[in-house]
């Protein structure tokens, strides 16, 4: 895993000149080839081949070793110092830009760009209602075990549960949170991640780029997470024809004026008609 090796990046960056390291990294980043291969050690090795530093051998060796247990929280999250966080922010941010199709970079960048004050703000939204508080307290997960597909299958076609099942059938389970340091905020982020599919359903957006963009704009309005806002810039890459079809600003406003999704107990809405859920939360379906 990329993230597993990240801490060691700084270990080496303290032994070699930090500046040279960053410059060399950036130089190689332009070749998006590296990011097809998400093993950071491989990436570094490539850098090494081009710009040899004697200290690198040792580092690559280290980076390939499994992560030391005391660098992990009991729940598997990775302990990072602020320098490590900034390195990941930089590397995963650039990688994600260069190669938006690669989920790992996007996931990592999403986590490290969710600064504490942003997540606290989301958490505070949860703390303002009884439901939000109960979610934070019980920390329910949305997956095949908690939302039994056999049960969802029996629900009417226009129910949220059935639609949810259709969306997640291909086993698109949401990645665990690895890089957020505070355990409660890590859960808040996980909850946001697990809500993503529901946003698709409620805004009637597909999972292609044309569907993903308005979802990101909606999420930015609803959560304020920086990564969702940055992702919106991908709109500029679209052809004029597609640009005209996707109204990002409307989606953003839609997210802004809907109830905060982070505090919604989706588990309790599974049997509801999707249309009623939209009304309850003030969502206007796009398209």
């Amino acid at each position: 895993m990329l993230s597993r090796h990240i801490p060691n990046v700084t270990q080496v960056s303290t032994t070699i000149s930090k500046r040279t390291f960053i410059i060399s990294t950036l130089a190689t980043l332009t070749n998006s080839q590296y990011f097809k291969n998400i093993q950071l050690a491989d990436e570094i090795e490539d850098i090494h081949n081009k710009l040899p530093f004697p200290q690198m051998d040792e580092f690559i060796q280290q980076a390939r070793e499994p992560l030391h247990e005391d660098r992990k929280f009991p729940d598997g999250r990775i302990k990072l110092n602020s320098l490590e966080q900034s390195s990941i922010f930089l590397i995963s941010g650039i990688s994600a830009l260069l190669n938006p199709a690669n989920g790992t970079h996007i996931n990592n960048f999403g986590e490290v760009s969710s600064f504490e004050f942003v997540l606290k703000n989301l958490r505070d939204q949860m703390l303002q209602t009884s439901t939000g508080r109960s979610i934070l307290r019980e920390r329910p997960l949305m997956n095949n075990e908690t939302l039994d597909p056999e049960w969802l299958k029996t629900l009417p076609e226009n129910s949220l549960g059935f639609q949810y099942l259709k969306f997640t059938e291909d086993g698109d389970s949401r990645a665990p949170v690895k890089l957020i340091q505070d355990e409660e905020l890590a859960y808040v982020f996980l909850r946001y991640r697990q809500t993503h599919d529901i946003v698709h359903i409620l805004t009637k957006s597909k999972i292609d780029l044309a569907g993903e963009l308005p979802v990101k704009a909606f999420e930015f309005g609803n959560t304020g997470l920086p990564m969702t806002g940055l992702a919106c810039f991908a709109w500029f890459k679209l052809s004029d024809k597609r640009k005209a079809r996707i109204n990002m600003f409307d989606s953003f406003l839609n997210g802004l004026q809907s109830k905060p999704f982070i505090g919604v107990k989706w588990e309790d809405f599974m049997e509801w008609d999707v249309e009623d859920v939209r009304k309850e939360l003030g969502v206007i379906p796009q398209n």
Partner: peptide
């Protein structure tokens, strides 16, 4: 924190 106290007062 304030957010907790405000919730309790409200309830």
């Amino acid at each position: 924190e304030d957010v907790d106290m405000q919730f309790y007062y409200k309830q």
